[in-house]
Simulated scan of single mutants.
Amino acid sequence: MRVGLVIYGSLATVSGGYLYDRQLVAHLEQQGDEVAIIALPWRSYGRHLLDNLSADLPRRMNGGFDVVLQDELNHPSLAWANGRLRRGPHPPIVAIVHHLRASEQRPAWQNWFYRRVERRYLRTADAFIFNSQTTRREVEALTGRARPHIVAYPGGDRLGPPATLSLEARANQSPFRLLFVGNVIPRKGSHDLVAALARVKGDWTLTIVGSVAVDATYVRHVRELAAQAGIGERLIWRGGLPDNELAAEMAAAHVLAVPSAYEGFGIVYLEGMGFGLPALATTAGAAAEIVTDGGNGYLVPPGDVVALAARIQSLLDDRALLARLSAAAVAGYAHRPTWAETTAAMRQFLVTIARQPEGG
Rank of each mutant, 00 (worst) to 15 (best):
N82M: 08
L85N: 13
N74I: 11
W109T: 12
A169T: 08
L277H: 02
Q23C: 13
A102M: 12
V209P: 00
P259A: 02
P242W: 12
Q228M: 05
Q70H: 08
Q70G: 07
P162F: 07
L159W: 01
G274D: 01
G182S: 08
D318L: 07
V351D: 12
Y333S: 10
R238C: 00
T342P: 02
W109M: 13
A257T: 00
D304S: 06
A251K: 05
A310C: 03
D293S: 15
A213Q: 09
L241I: 10
A213H: 05
I208H: 00
L28Y: 15
L235R: 08
F180V: 03
P337D: 14
D243T: 06
P148K: 06
D293E: 05
R145A: 15
S314N: 09
R86F: 10
N244T: 08
N82T: 08
T13N: 04
L325S: 02
P357A: 14
R84S: 07
A226H: 04
L280N: 02
D56R: 14
A127I: 01
E138K: 14
N52Q: 05
T135H: 07
P162D: 11
A195C: 02
L325F: 00
Y20W: 11
S10I: 00
R59V: 12
Q31C: 01
L197D: 04
D293V: 08
A279T: 06
T282V: 07
V184N: 03
P89T: 13
G274L: 10
R22M: 13
A261T: 10
E245W: 03
R87W: 09
P175F: 06
S166E: 12
V94C: 09
V268Q: 09
P58A: 13
V351W: 06
I7F: 08
V94I: 08
R87C: 10
E341T: 13
F113L: 15
D203G: 07
V151M: 01
H254M: 01
A261C: 02
E118K: 13
E245T: 01
W204K: 04
L11V: 12
G16N: 08
I150Y: 01
A26P: 04
S260L: 11
A195Q: 14
D293K: 04
A55T: 09
S54P: 06
S174Q: 12
A327W: 00
A169C: 00
R324S: 08
G210W: 03
T134F: 15
V351K: 09
V181I: 14
G4I: 11
P92L: 07
L85F: 11
L225A: 07
L85H: 14
Q105V: 14
I290Q: 03
S15C: 10
G156K: 02
A345N: 05
P58N: 12
E245K: 10
A169S: 06
P76Q: 12
G17K: 05
D66E: 13
A226P: 02
N131Q: 05
R84Q: 09
A331H: 13
G156A: 05
K201V: 06
A79E: 02
E138W: 09
A196P: 00
A198C: 03
A309L: 04
L246D: 00
A127S: 10
V330K: 00
G297I: 09
I37H: 05
H27C: 02
F275K: 01
H191Q: 12
G274P: 04
N244D: 15
Q356L: 14
Y269P: 01
